[in-house]
């Protein structure tokens, strides 16, 4: 699946997006997998209360299932307006 990052999450991980091969069942499972990769992922995902997630461009939750999802996005709370 395509995993995309925005704002400081993108800067901390050092990538705007990447293709991730995973069998993670939920967003939380995916985060656990990513955190094990490298320190920069562990740092970005250290506090998920500071993060938001979108699945296929719709805001979602960390316990949401990933079955059928093509794009997962992680970003901080939005600051539009």
């Amino acid at each position: 699946m395509n995993v995309v990052y925005f704002a400081w999450v993108r800067e901390r991980i050092g990538l705007p997006q990447e293709t991730v091969e995973t069998s993670a069942a939920t967003v939380n499972d995916l985060i656990a997998e990513l955190k094990q990769r490298e320190e920069r992922y562990a740092a970005a995902f250290a506090d998920t209360s500071a993060l938001r997630v979108a699945l296929d461009q719709e805001l979602s939750d960390f316990d949401a299932p990933l079955a059928g999802v093509k794009e997962v996005a992680f970003f901080p709370p939005m600051t539009g307006g």
Binding site: W8, F75, P76, M78, G80, G81
Partner: peptide, 21 residues
Amino acid sequence: KSRAPFWKKEVTDAGSAWVEA
């Protein structure tokens, strides 16, 4: 302000920082 996916970053003389919600 809170539900459209925009993120503001301020670049100042002191450096740059993301605006916190």
